[in-house]
């Protein structure tokens, strides 16, 4: 592995079920993540994915790639265009740096039909550890 390596893209169909399941699994009961009418009243066209689900998907994307020994050390994300039902988010990643402590830094972009849903950086340790 070296800086510049690209991770294979991962397509995530943004279903209503994923949005609601992710919100409930993260114990986020904000109505905009499960109640379409409430979301519309707040200026959104539909329910949309919560940030905790996006965070979980970004983490999964990186650990899926680096395998069972990989451990997430940091996940830093910023949201842009919302993930609405019916869209598809395509996650892509690029290794931007390798640390002397066996960590890799991966730049992440999750693009949907509206633009960039998420951009961010994940730090993952890719070597076996004792703990």
């Amino acid at each position: 592995m070296k800086a510049g390596d690209e991770l294979p893209a991962l397509e995530i169909p943004v279903t209503r079920t994923l949005i609601v399941a992710g919100a409930v699994a993260s114990r986020d009961y904000q109505d905009v993540h499960h109640d379409t009418e409430a979301a519309r009243a707040k200026g959104a066209p539909d329910i949309f994915m919560n940030i905790l689900t996006t965070n979980g998907l970004v983490g999964r994307y990186v650990t899926d790639h680096f395998g069972p020994a990989a451990r997430l050390r940091a996940v830093r994300i910023r949201l842009g265009a919302p993930n609405y039902p019916g869209d598809t988010m395509v996650l892509t990643g690029t290794v931007t740096a390798l640390g002397p402590d066996g960590t890799a830094e991966v730049r992440i972009v999750g693009a949907n039909g509206l633009g960039h849903h998420v951009t961010g950086t994940v730090t993952v340790s890719v070597q076996e550890q004792d703990s």
Partner: peptide, 26 residues
Amino acid sequence: WCEAMGDTGAAYRGPGAIAPPTMLQA
């Protein structure tokens, strides 16, 4: 959480499992 995220990571299952770190806020 893993079901919702579609995360089948071995670290999060079975004896010695850890929680997905991204669950921190949850």
